[in-house]
Amino acid sequence: MSVKQAVDNQFLESMEGKHPFLKRMFTVFISQEPKRIGEIRQAIEDRDMEKLRHLAHALKGGAATMGVTGVRDCCLLLENASKNQDMTEAQSLIDTLESEIQDAYAFMFTFLAEH
């Protein structure tokens, strides 16, 4: 089974020779973001657009820092949906976000196992 390239190659190249640091970054991301994903889902269920905007913005920043472009892009769309009070759009994006984050976790777990 191949793992989707969920982390940007340019980011990975910038971290060449810094694998211990990158491993710590991936470990923190994997340990902290599942809670935030759950909070994003709950904000959508609660129709709390302000909380959704805040959570999507925070995850977008973390994902951008880590080169996880699929998650970053989805969070940008969620953030925009919350600003526009578009609950239909927000609801349509949560499954995509969860899929993208699972791809990122799989990539990071594989990286951690191989390095």
Rank of each mutant, 00 (worst) to 15 (best):
A63D: 02
A63L: 05
A56V: 04
D86V: 02
A90Y: 03
L52Q: 01
Y105E: 06
A63H: 02
C75S: 10
L77D: 10
R36C: 09
R24M: 07
L78R: 00
K23P: 06
E50R: 00
L112P: 05
G70P: 00
V68C: 10
Q102Y: 03
L77W: 01
I94L: 14
F107P: 02
A90W: 01
L77V: 04
H57I: 10
V71N: 11
Q5M: 06
F21R: 03
P34Y: 00
L78H: 02
A64T: 08
T88E: 15
G70I: 01
A104R: 09
E39F: 02
A6S: 13
L93H: 08
F107T: 02
I44E: 10
S31K: 03
L12Q: 08
R53V: 00
S14H: 08
L112E: 11
A113I: 04
Q10H: 11
F26E: 09
M66Q: 12
E98M: 15
T65A: 11
R24G: 07
K18F: 15
A58F: 09
L55P: 04
K51P: 00
D86C: 05
F26C: 12
I101Q: 14
L12D: 07
F29I: 12
K83F: 02
H19C: 05
R72I: 04
E39I: 00
A106T: 09
S92P: 04
D103Q: 13
N9Y: 08
E100Y: 07
A43R: 09
F26N: 09
K51G: 06
G61L: 07
I101E: 14
V28A: 09
N80S: 07
K60G: 10
D8V: 10
L76V: 12
G38W: 06
L22G: 11
Q85H: 11
M108C: 04
S99M: 15
K18H: 14
S82P: 05
K18A: 13
V71F: 11
E13S: 15
Q32H: 13
T88R: 03
K23M: 12
G62A: 14
A106K: 12
L97A: 15
M108P: 00
Q42M: 07
G67K: 04
C75I: 09
I101P: 02
F111L: 08
A106I: 03
E45K: 09
T96M: 13
E16L: 09
I37T: 10
T110C: 01
R41F: 14
Q10G: 12
G70Q: 05
D86M: 04
A63T: 01
I94K: 12
E114M: 06
A81V: 01
A63K: 01
